[in-house]
Design a protein around this nucleic acid. Structure first.
Length: 808
RNA sequence: GGGCAGGUGGCGGAAUUGGUAGACGCGCUGGGUUUAGAACCCAGUGCUGACAAGGCGUGAGGGUUCGAAUCCCUCCCUGCCCACCA
């Protein structure tokens, strides 16, 4: 028979619900803290999946382990509930997200409860509730105050057939996800946040974080710092000049053309005579293509008819326009050096522009295959010939600087954050547009600007927010002049609420009004100082750049306001690996390979599911699901249950040395493995221990100590066994067992005997024997003699207490 | 094209200051138990020999070493991320 997991799990989940972890915190407030954070889920209609389970169980093991180790643990959960899926679902079902988001949350909570996770529900937060987004809006206004918010035209995706604005997620390969037509780009005035002002700090502070190297690298690439030079090129027969950005100043004598982005503001001013009309046509064509989402860079371009003069030689350089030059990076203009840049090369070949090689990898060696993008020595560069690229760069810089034609410049790939969405289900942007006063922030006393209830959430025909149609909400008195004005109707992006939720958990409290209790967030720097930083943050790698970069930026802004005391929020980051379906493909509805955790809990119990997911492999690795493999953990727990029954009759008080040795080693191993997040090997060593015990007996005391080790992994079963031995306490409040080194240091060791590096024999010997004694012992052995026979022994390799190798 | 991670039995995976390769689990094979099945228990299970002794084995090839899954070189493959960034 199976152990009655259903009964046991229900029973303890009920009891744990009453566990108040907030009281727990205050009791220990002087002790050492650990803040264990999960990336909070988006409560979609689909419920938890096995990936969530992996994430949450891992952090739950840590939380339970460290609580037993005496740490004060903050381990909260909440809901990132604004955003597109809820809204799309609402549109489909004609239901208000305000109604069904709470339903989804209830469902998630039930599932989380059924897994036996030890969250502190007093600290639960929900980004869509006014007490929460009060602060999201407040922080936005602080940014506004500090000049970090500005309005600028920016593109949105628009489907001309559905006549609606689309989020990036809804555009798949340039086509509308719903109707399959090509989407267009529409330009709308949108709010931006100057995250670029923090680029250098975001880059610099990565170095001090205990994060996976690949995630840090992704952020570095995303920020994309590039140090180089801005050079002025005078345009011939004109008083204009073009600024060009380059990181390869030493190739300056290889310039054979200059290329501008089709959106460069100077183009129409410099285009000459007959060329003018062609240029104009080219630009119009480009813009059209751009707006149709169909652009692919094909290195087309057109000559403007104008020439620039080379800043050193004064030679004439033709000025071109090309689609491969980006308008929104650096100066929007490049110096074309086809011999040493693959894109310039491609362009020059296409339009038969001259190619001059000016760098050679070794002196006197001409490369046949251009472009050559490496370093080396200069050629064809007049006074600078034969100089190393590094040296030439500096000399050329000094020369041009003396002529005032150059300056050092740094550019980042990072773009400012487009912060407005033309959508209903988000935090309203707390700004008011007044005819007289312009854009006026909503006064702090009027926060939060609550999201109104509306019947129609559909995106509008114009690409504007659906809130625009709600007259009573839009019309508002200007806080400055008291004339009628209008609210900003765009809402914040999904990322906004998740930028500071880890602070909200710390700050959440309750207030009482008319005998009712309301959640509230009160800024308390002492609390923040105590709990920050997040010590370990676990979640999926899909948030490597966006969420994790936005949140870091947001935190740094709060740091600048002196609202938090440390510059980085997340000390250690761990990405759990993706769990693939049994077919080795990513789990998805359309593939039909999704595994539902509820079914498994029903069949095998939450404890088995917990252990199985942790036992599958290392937390961070991608793993394939194997439904039959859950039987292993299930059998393991059944064995423990049966062994416990048997053990209750055991009257033994003292354990054999053999058992003590084995058990003390286990304590050490499980503790270390948990701390290193190696849950799979912690579990396998517990399995080994239970197998080892099967024909032995162990004292009740140490069996219960073993149950403590099991507790973080299988809390329900462990707690039930604990109680069945007459213990009344919650294991949560028990102390993690310590190991005794006396039982870990062995007197005897197994010596490996190798012949020519191959294991041929082994021998149990006392520790610390010297080489001569060991040599005698092993040479006397039959097996060893057999392998040596009459061959001559060249030498011995002896490693104390480990191995001896006979070289023959 | 660039960056990062990785490649170990039929499968998931263990083992790294270079020192017993394949722990633990799944699956499979044989046996027990059972009316039968499920569940459970016992034995076996990298490949190749014959049940032995032995030989071969960590993507491929080479190197360093008494000794390499682990270090170095060349190559192949897989996954993830980025990709006109001047």
């Amino acid at each position: 028979m199976f152990y009655p997991f259903k009964k046991i799990e229900k029973k303890w989940q009920k009891i744990w619900q009453k566990n108040n972890y907030s009281i727990w915190h205050s009791k220990y407030l002087l002790g050492k803290k650990i803040y264990i954070l999960d990336m909070f889920p988006y409560p979609s209609g689909e419920g938890l999946h096995v990936g969530h389970v992996e994430n949450f169980v891992a952090s739950d093991i840590l939380a339970r382990y460290y609580r037993m180790k005496g740490f004060n643990i903050l381990h909260p959960m909440g809901w990132d509930a604004f955003g597109l899926p809820a809204e799309n679902y609402a549109i489909k079902k004609n239901k208000n997200p305000k109604d069904f988001v709470p339903q989804n949350i209830e469902r998630y909570k039930k599932q989380i409860e059924s897994l036996g996770l030890s969250y502190d529900w007093q600290r639960e937060i929900n980004t869509t509730e006014p007490y929460y987004y009060y602060w999201t809006q407040w922080m936005f206004l602080k940014m506004f105050e500090r000049g970090l918010v500005y309005e600028k035209e920016a593109p949105i995706n628009f489907c001309p057939s559905c006549k609606t604005g689309l989020a990036n997620e809804e555009v798949v390969e340039g086509k509308c996800e719903r109707c399959g037509n090509y989407t267009e780009i529409k330009f709308l005035k949108q709010w931006h946040i100057k995250i670029t002002a923090y680029a250098e700090r975001l880059l610099e502070d990565l170095n001090n974080l205990d994060w996976p190297e690949n995630i840090k690298e992704m952020q570095r690439n995303w920020i994309g710092k590039s140090e180089g030079y801005e050079i002025d090129f005078k345009i011939k027969n004109s008083d204009q000049s073009i600024k060009v950005f380059t990181t390869r100043l030493e190739t300056i004598f290889g310039i054979t053309f200059i290329a501008l982005s089709p959106l460069h503001p100077l183009i129409l001013k410099i285009a000459k005579g007959d060329y003018y009309l062609n240029v104009e046509e080219y630009i119009n064509h480009y813009i059209k293509k751009l707006s149709k989402h169909q652009f692919e860079i094909d290195f087309n371009g057109i000559f403007t008819g104008a020439y620039a003069s080379h800043p050193i030689t004064g030679e004439s350089i033709p000025i071109w326009i090309s689609d491969y030059v980006l308008s929104d990076y650096a100066t929007g203009a490049i110096m074309g050096v086809p011999a040493h840049n693959k894109f310039d090369y491609k362009f020059a070949k296409k339009f038969m522009i001259k190619i001059i090689q000016v760098i050679t990898p070794q002196k006197n060696k001409i490369i046949e295959k251009l472009p050559y993008e490496g370093d080396g020595f200069l050629i064809n560069s007049f006074d600078y010939d034969d100089l190393k690229t590094e040296v030439a760069k500096e000399k050329i810089f000094q020369y041009l600087e003396s002529k005032n034609l150059i300056k050092k410049a740094v550019y980042y790939r990072l773009k400012d954050w487009v912060f407005s969405r033309q959508r209903y289900w988000g935090e309203p942007i707390p700004l008011i547009r007044c005819q007289k006063c312009g854009v006026v922030p909503v006064p702090e006393k009027d926060l939060p600007v609550t999201l109104p209830n509306v019947k129609n959430y559909k995106p509008t025909l114009t690409g504007e927010s659906p809130l625009k149609n709600i007259n009573w909400w839009v019309k508002v008195k200007c806080p400055k002049c008291s004339d009628w004005a209008e609210r900003e109707t765009q809402t914040m992006p999904q990322w906004a609420g998740s930028c500071w939720y880890y602070l909200a958990y710390i700050l959440k409290t309750f207030s009482k009004q008319k005998n009712k209790i309301y959640p509230k967030i009160i800024w308390d720097k002492n609390k923040l100082n105590y709990w920050l930083p997040v010590d370990i943050y676990i979640g999926g790698a899909e948030h490597a750049v966006l969420h994790l970069l936005y949140a870091r930026f947001w935190h740094k802004f709060l740091f600048d306001l002196n609202l938090v005391s440390i510059p980085e929020p997340f000390k250690k980051l761990v990405n759990q690996g993706i769990i693939l379906g049994t077919d080795g493909e990513k789990m998805s509805k359309s593939r039909g390979n999704v595994i539902n955790p509820d079914d498994l809990i029903n069949k095998y119990g939450a404890d088995s599911l917990r252990i199985y997911e942790m036992f599958m492999g290392p937390l961070i690795e991608t793993k394939k699901w194997d439904s039959s493999a859950i039987m292993g953990p299930f059998r393991f727990l059944n064995k423990i249950w049966l062994y416990s029954k048997k053990n209750k009759k055991n009257k033994k008080l003292k354990d054999s040395i053999e058992v003590l040795k084995s058990f003390n080693k286990l304590i050490k191993k499980v503790s270390q493995d948990i701390e290193n997040l190696k849950f799979n090997t912690a579990i396998s060593s517990m399995m080994e221990f239970v197998n080892f015990l099967s024909d032995k007996s162990i004292s009740k005391k140490n069996w219960l100590n073993f149950i403590k080790l099991l507790y973080p992994f299988a809390p329900h079963l462990a707690q039930e066994i604990w109680q069945s031995f007459g213990k009344k306490s919650l294991l949560e409040k028990e102390i993690w067992p310590d190991y005794d080194n006396r039982y870990i240091d062995e007197d005897n060791i197994i010596l490996i005997i190798q012949v020519n590096g191959k294991k041929r024999d082994e021998l149990v010997i006392k520790k610390n024997l010297n080489f001569e004694d060991v040599k005698k012992m092993i040479l006397a052995r039959e097996k060893v003699k057999k392998f040596i026979k009459d061959k001559k022994i060249k030498k011995f390799i002896f490693i104390q207490d480990k191995l001896i190798n006979i070289v023959i």
